[in-house]
Amino acid sequence: MIFRELFIFIAAFAAFASAVAAYLAVFHGEAALKEILSTAAAAVIGLYIGRCLQKRLSNG
């Protein structure tokens, strides 16, 4: 169970980081590592908050 959560965390972080890096590179011409990592971290935190809310709301 914990490996599943760890895999989801790593996959989500990688997906968000690559999407942010691509956006910054295409539309702004540069991609700072600090911006990429902080935005990806915020997105993963939001993802996990959403997952927790979904579990609580589905249980009643």
Score class of each variant (00 low, 15 high):
A42Y: 05
C52A: 13
H28W: 12
L24W: 06
A42H: 03
L33G: 00
E35T: 07
S58G: 02
R4K: 13
R56F: 07
A17P: 02
I36E: 00
E35M: 03
A22K: 05
Y23H: 14
A17S: 15
A40V: 06
L24M: 15
E5F: 14
Y48R: 08
E5N: 11
A21M: 09
I10S: 08
L57V: 14
A22G: 08
I2D: 09
G50K: 07
N59M: 12
S58E: 12
E35C: 00
A14M: 05
A41C: 06
T39V: 11
L53M: 11
Q54D: 12
E35A: 07
E35W: 07
G50M: 10
R56N: 08
A25H: 07
V20D: 04
A14C: 11
A40S: 15
A12I: 01
E30F: 13
R4N: 12
R4E: 13
I45D: 01
A41K: 04
L33D: 06
A42G: 06
A25E: 12
L37R: 00
A11D: 12
F7E: 05
E30M: 10
A21W: 07
H28C: 09
M1R: 11
A31T: 07
A43W: 01
I8M: 04
A25M: 08
F13S: 04
A15H: 03
S38F: 09
L33P: 02
A14N: 07
R51M: 13
F27A: 13
R56K: 13
G50N: 09
G46M: 03
S58Y: 04
A31R: 03
I49P: 00
F9V: 02
E35S: 07
C52Y: 10
A21L: 03
I8E: 07
V26T: 11
F3Y: 06
G50P: 05
R56E: 12
F7T: 03
G60Y: 09
A14D: 07
V44A: 00
I8P: 02
F13K: 02
C52P: 01
I45P: 00
G29P: 08
A41L: 10
A25Q: 08
L37P: 00
I45Q: 01
A43H: 00
I49C: 03
A12S: 15
G60D: 10
L6H: 08
I10P: 01
F13W: 14
G50A: 13
A19G: 05
R51E: 07
L47C: 00
F13M: 10
S58H: 01
V26S: 05
E30S: 15
M1K: 11
L57W: 09
E30R: 14
F9L: 12
S18Q: 13
Q54I: 06
M1P: 07
A19M: 15
K55M: 11
F16I: 01
I10F: 11
G46N: 06
I36R: 02
I45H: 01
